[in-house]
Nucleic acid binder design. Structure first.
Length: 276
DNA sequence: CTTGTGTCCTGTAGGC
DNA sequence: TGCCTACAGGACACAA
């Protein structure tokens, strides 16, 4: 699942390869991959435009185009972006942008839940309004224990659920929320309003550190069809996971068996001894 | 406003 | 060997 560290890794790798390139054609193999405006409008809207740079907000990757346009990607669960020779086929490809250097940017998405949006200026469509309501990223300087406390203290939902809510803080998904809760020593099932100031401070620090470490190791590749870098290589953070995907195995810190619980339609793994 | 549940989508794992 | 079913999960719509 591409989360903030994976999207940031993709952004950093794509930036030197795409900046300054012109989009000369578009091939769409699955129409529902286009979230906005329409297939025809997106094709017409991007052809001939140059990519001026790449940015990111939470889990959204943004290609800035000449003339204040933006191509916004969300990779959801299994999306990937590859830069390939235009003659090369890509598995599960749903959309391809041909570039003026003979290469192509391929959007591969087995589950077809990922989307690409074309917007002009700051004219965000309703399907992207969630993007405008996102909270701070844990890695930005203004993110603090105080900020997280304000977001969590009056909420009685489970802390795990709220960490996945992009309005609380953005860029965090299932992998990094589980890992941050382990580092902070907090059970995912805890109600947010039961957390002490000290626990929230630990959680804020844990979110920062785990995301930064995820970026350092170029993201987490669990299965090679869920997340790969734009050149097809794998990330490295899976080698440092403490609880995610570890249910039934021994905790590396205390030896207890890692548990997995279902919390409102998603799973969370934790150590019953290290997390309280 | 807040919280919880259902839905989207399809490749893959696991059962038989 | 091959068919069949359950499953995973980010964001959002919707219900209570």
């Amino acid at each position: 699942m591409p989360e903030l560290p994976e999207i940031e890794t993709i952004r950093r790798r794509l930036e030197p390869q795409l900046t300054g390139k012109r989009i000369i054609n578009v091939r769409i193999k699955r129409a529902d991959i286009v979230g906005h405006p329409t297939v025809q409008r997106l094709i017409k809207g991007v052809i001939g435009r140059r990519i001026t740079g790449l940015s990111r907000r939470g889990k959204y990757l943004i290609l800035n185009l000449t003339g204040q346009g933006k191509l916004i990607f969300h990779l959801r669960l299994s999306g990937a972006l590859f830069v390939v020779e235009d003659s090369k086929e890509v598995k599960f490809e749903r959309l391809r942008f041909g570039l003026d250097d003979g290469k192509a940017l391929s959007f591969s998405e087995p589950r077809v839940l990922g989307r690409v949006y074309l917007i002009e200026g700051n004219n965000y469509p309703a399907v992207l309004c969630g993007m405008l309501r996102m909270g701070l990223e844990p890695i930005e300087p203004s993110f603090s224990a105080k900020y997280l406390q304000e977001k969590l203290q009056s909420r009685k939902a489970r802390v795990k659920t709220l960490l996945l809510d992009q309005r609380v803080c953005c860029g965090v998904g299932n992998i990094y929320s589980d890992e941050a809760l382990f580092r902070a020593g907090i059970r995912p099932l805890r109600r947010a309003n039961s957390l002490t100031a000290r626990e929230i401070a630990r959680l804020a620090q844990a979110l920062r550190s785990v995301l930064k470490q995820g970026i350092k190791w170029c993201g987490t590749t669990m299965d090679d069809w869920r997340y790969l870098l734009p050149d097809g290589s794998a990330g490295g953070f899976q080698n440092y996971l403490a609880v995610f995907g570890k249910a039934g195995t021994a905790c590396r810190r205390c030896g207890s068996t890692i548990r997995r619980v279902r919390i409102s339609n998603r799973y969370s793994s934790y150590c019953p001894e290290c997390q309280r």
